[in-house]
């Protein structure tokens, strides 16, 4: 039975499931490092998922859909940037408004454009980049089957996400932009004093998180599901926030934490398939990612320290 659960496919699905979480979590990392809380990741992801799908339905091009998902993410996150940076609004409340707005706009346009609520028609998806055969016997054949199964069967955004995680980690700690970003979240007044535009820096960070969360939405619809369903993000934006905290506000940490959640999700799906053997109601498996999020938050905080100025609007003086 264990052999039915522990398969290459389980770990492959961990990478798949981790991808939207990781993209949003890295977006959250960048945004919070600049000093802006972004609980709107959920809504931005949903917006990206919808407009990505709509673009594919209109043009038949999945890559154009990916692009439009990111553009939509940037556009809706601009509202959050404007509210948080320029209007000094409560960032958590502004994020809540965007989550609701995303739910409303996607549902509204769904009915306006497609004439019905619920789920869109299926779209052309992005398939795996490589399609290698996993044949061959013996020990080496078995190793190849695992390596191929876990790492080489993925769709483009899954790999792009790994690259983004590595690049963001490097950029946050090794570039001038990264230094300024981190300083803005710790002590914006000091950054301002040396002539860096905090407003612009925070705007850029929020828009970047919007692009990443939009890309996460594209991964959900254009690579994983193949259609859009209302409210399909199902709390992933909030789990991504927890992943960012668990990853201690670093890009690679966010990716690692997302992998953990992805593995739990993959396990949950595997166990559901075996529900005739293990007689536990499926709802308990569906709860698993949310329970895990609470457990992870309970275990990690106190040791993880948020950027000092996160959530505080910055008021330029003079």
């Amino acid at each position: 039975m264990l052999g039915d659960i522990i398969t290459p496919d389980l770990f492959a699905s961990a990478f798949r499931m981790a991808t939207p979480l990781a993209l949003a979590a890295i977006g959250g990392t960048i945004c919070e490092r600049s000093g802006v809380v972004n609980i709107a990741l959920e809504g931005i992801m949903l917006t990206g998922a919808f407009f990505g799908t709509a673009a594919v339905l209109a043009t038949g091009s999945p890559w154009f859909g990916v692009l439009m998902a990111m553009v939509a993410g940037v556009v809706i996150s601009a509202i959050h940037a404007f509210a948080s940076v320029n209007l000094k609004a409560d960032q958590v409340v502004s994020g809540t408004a965007i989550n609701l707005l995303a739910l409303g706009v996607t549902g509204f346009l769904m009915e306006r454009w497609y004439g019905h609520p619920g789920t869109t028609d299926p779209i052309k998806t992005l398939g795996p980049i490589l399609r290698l055969t996993a044949e061959g016997g013996g020990f080496l054949g078995e190793v190849w089957r695992w390596v191929n199964g876990i790492f080489l069967t993925h769709t483009p955004i899954v790999y792009i996400t790994v690259l983004i995680a590595i690049f963001a980690q490097w950029a946050i700690y090794n570039t001038r932009w990264g230094l300024r970003l981190r300083a803005m979240g710790e002590h914006p007044r000091a950054v301002d004093t040396v002539g860096v535009n905090v407003y612009r820096g925070r705007w850029v960070a929020v828009l970047m998180s919007g692009a990443l969360a939009g890309l996460a939405g594209a991964n959900l619809t254009i690579e994983q599901v193949g259609s859009f369903t209302e409210n399909m993000t199902n709390g992933r934006g909030f789990i991504a926030l927890a992943a960012n905290i668990f990853g201690r506000w670093t890009a690679l940490g966010s990716y690692g934490a997302s992998l953990l959640f992805g593995l739990a999700d993959g396990l949950q799906i595997k166990l559901q398939i075996l529900r005739d053997v293990i007689r536990i109601p499926p709802q308990f498996f569906l709860m698993l990612p949310y329970v895990l999020t609470v457990v992870v938050l309970a275990g990690v905080i106190g040791r993880a320290v948020a950027p000092a100025a996160v959530g505080e609007p910055y008021e330029k003086k003079g």
Partner: peptide, 15 residues
Amino acid sequence: LIIQALVIFFVAAEE
């Protein structure tokens, strides 16, 4: 839902 979101937004963005 959109109107609800706008209400929250305008209350938050009192400016």
